[in-house]
């Protein structure tokens, strides 16, 4: 990993630096208080318990990867973070989930407003097919009655999603005229347009070819500057490439969580070691 310390410019925690495609090491968090705190989170589908007592914290402007074999609960975990889990009939979640200290699972928290602060990108790109590229990005703005110049916001977020140059001449074209990888970046732009603080990504590149995947991974590095990201992936190498911290789930339990480098080279738990070395999965 290229350390940003190798550039000549001295860095301060709050200075905006021109960004090359460098990565930030996990050892340089900017602020100490965690963005997300999860305590005792359990989730059920009807009678089946999918998550047991999960405890972890996510540092602001970092990437946390959730890994584990199929059915281990990592996607369920992700969906609890923006309360999409409870939309499934018969599903429920209990525990404490703090965003900047405020409990998201509390009765007085409206899931609708929550989802503006915690955005989500899905496994398969799901742009609204009847809308143009521009309208897709602006969809969240229109819904949430955000004022201001939508066109300017659309351009800004498309640039953030590294898609602007490819679509700037066809903002009015149907969203479906884009390739799969472009559609996924469009969905990312759409999620970013409402300016969330946390971005949840559920296996965002699993439906894409390797080149598109690489672009998404580069994008995550860039987005990390401004957003806190939690990404679920079944691809361990991807987790190693993009994340600062990794959480390993197995059969509904959070087995181990820690800096990515440690999880992959020197994990504390045997199960973690078995998984990352490919002994099962």
């Amino acid at each position: 990993m290229i350390s940003s310390l190798e550039t000549a410019t001295p860095m301060t925690p709050f200075e905006e630096r021109p960004h090359e495609s460098g990565h930030r090491t996990a050892a340089a968090p900017r602020v100490a208080t965690p963005k997300l705190t999860v305590r005792g989170l359990s989730a059920w589908y009807g009678k089946n318990r999918a998550l047991h007592d999960v405890n972890l914290t996510v540092a602001p402007r970092s990437v946390m990867a959730a890994i584990g074999p199929s059915g281990c609960g990592k996607s369920t975990f992700l969906r609890c973070l923006n309360r999409m889990h409870e939309l499934i009939p018969g599903a429920r979640a209990e525990g404490t989930l703090l965003l900047d200290g405020k409990d998201l699972l509390g009765r007085d928290v409206d899931p609708v407003t929550l989802r503006r602060r915690v955005g989500m990108v899905f496994q398969r790109p799901n742009p609204f097919p009847t809308m143009s590229v521009r309208d897709n990005v602006a969809a969240g703005l229109r819904l949430n009655r955000v004022g201001g110049d939508h066109d300017e916001i659309v351009e800004r977020t498309l640039r953030q999603a590294a898609l602007w140059d490819e679509v700037k001449d066809r903002l009015g074209a149907s969203a479906l005229s884009l390739s799969g990888g472009q559609q996924q970046r469009l969905c990312i732009a759409r999620a970013l347009a409402v300016e969330p603080e946390v971005l949840l990504m559920d296996e965002p590149a699993s439906a894409l070819d390797p080149i598109a995947t690489a672009k998404i991974e580069d994008l995550i590095h860039e987005l990390k500057e401004r957003y806190t990201i939690v990404i679920v992936t079944h691809n361990m190498q991807q987790a190693g490439r993009v994340s600062d911290h990794t959480a390993f789930f197995y059969m509904g339990d959070l087995v181990e969580v820690g800096p990515t480098e440690k999880i992959f080279t020197n994990p504390s738990e045997k199960r973690t070691e078995d998984y990352v070395t490919g002994k099962f999965g």
Partner: peptide, 11 residues
Amino acid sequence: ALKEGALALGA
């Protein structure tokens, strides 16, 4: 997935 996408935006 379309409905989920809209809900995730805070609809």
